[in-house]
Each structure stands twice: as C-alpha cells, then as structure tokens.
Design a protein around this nucleic acid. Structure first.
Lengths: 102, 102
DNA sequence: TGACATTATGTCAGATTTGCCATATTCTAA
DNA sequence: TTAGAATATGGCAAATCTGACATAATGTCA
C-alpha cells in the first residue's frame, strides 16, 4: 500500500526494524515487513556460510544476481515467495524455515 | 513458471498434494506449492473456528470476498504474502504460523 | 597500484498478483 | 419449496513483482 513511501525512505538509507509503524502501515503490513527482514537476513547468512556467490545462488534458483542483491539488501519489492524459494534453494528444510519465522 | 499448466489442470478439478512433480516443477516450486496448500488450509480452518465470513475476513485485511474464496479454494495465483496477511488478520502469532510451515 | 571477483544500483518490458465488480452456485433455516 | 446468507467463478484494469541487462561500486589479492 505505502510501498512508494517506504521505497522513498529506504532510498534515503532507512532500514526497517521491529517498529515500522511510523507510516500508516496496518499491523499486518508491519509484521510482514519484519518477517521479510528476518528471511532476508537468513538468506544472506546461509549463503555466506556456504560460501556461495549471489551469482551461483541466482542460477540455482533460476533468478539473477541483481535480484539476489536486492533481496539481501532490503528492496521492499521482493515477495515472500521469492525469499522462500531462495531459502529452499539453499537447502533449508521447512523446519529450519519455520524457525526463522517464529 | 508453469502456472498456466497448473491453472489448467486445477480448472479440471486437480488438487495438489505432496507430490506435485508430474509437471516440470523444480523441487523448490513443488515445495512452495505444498507450503501454500498448508497455509490455505489453515486459513479456512481458523476462519471457520472463529465463525467469520469470507466477507468479514476480507474487510479485516483490506481485500475482497472473492479473493478470499480464491485463496481458500486453491487458486495458484495467490501469493504467500497474501496468505500470511490473512493468517495475521485472523490473529495468528508468528509461532502459530511457523507451526503450519514446519 | 591494477586486474579481477563480487556485490550494488538503475532501468525496463513482460509476467504475475491484486482488489473489485457482476453473477452464479451452494448452503441454511423457515 | 423459497428467501436470504455465504461462497464460488469469471473477468478486468491497475499495481506489483520478475528476470535480465548494463554499469557502478566495493572488495580482494598479488
């Protein structure tokens, strides 16, 4: 809904943490943002741990390096679907993924 | 990727279960479908339990009745994002949601 | 320093997803 | 049965998301 505003703020260096409610975000929207944040962090962390480049991860999941970069960097225009695909491509089990969310 | 094919099959009454790999789905795609299936089921279940109509849930999350119907019915063109928003609008905690995924 | 690998940023057309509307179908109780 | 509530289906324009590409910025190591 407020992706424009959000994008604008993030363009200026903002990073969203636990309380992203200074915009007119519904609680659900805020929760979803925080959830994405957690997923993104895990992707980067796991990729690093496996010593895989963004390029390699991209190929493994049929995406592109630039999208991975955006994903890890925090572009709001990245769906949960894509984040989950990345985690799965990294070999994460549902159990592991669920731990990130909880 | 194969959403066309998938949609076509589902239009004919197919419902996807654990092994949706008879199409050329990557393992990640198949896992994502199964995950969506679980989320959808939980939404319907929880909505029923709370005695809420699709109309009411729709309003609570800023969507529409028809989309909720599609969501619960299994329209492949529903993002995980939307499913999560629904679960959140139903008052589910992250912990509860994570249990669905695991 | 320079060459090279990796990651970041900007852009875009095509694909997907969205809310919404109309309407059909199914369900429920009198 | 019939009315009315609830759900399902079809369709659409607008919004969002996507992979891809070019290119810039950053890191790394000799």
């Amino acid at each position: 809904m407020d992706s424009k505003k959000r994008k604008k703020l993030e363009a200026k260096g903002w990073v969203f943490g636990d309380a992203a409610d200074f915009l007119s975000l519904t609680p659900e929207e805020a929760r979803l943002i925080d959830l994405k944040l957690a997923l993104r962090a895990s992707i980067k962390e796991e990729r690093m741990k496996q010593n895989i480049t963004q390029e390699e991860l991209a190929k493994a999941m049929g995406s592109s390096q630039s999208r991975i970069a955006k994903m890890e960097r925090g572009d709001p225009a990245v769906s949960v679907d894509l984040l989950l695909r990345a985690l799965m491509a990294l070999g994460m089990s549902n159990k592991q993924i669920s731990k990130i969310i909880a």
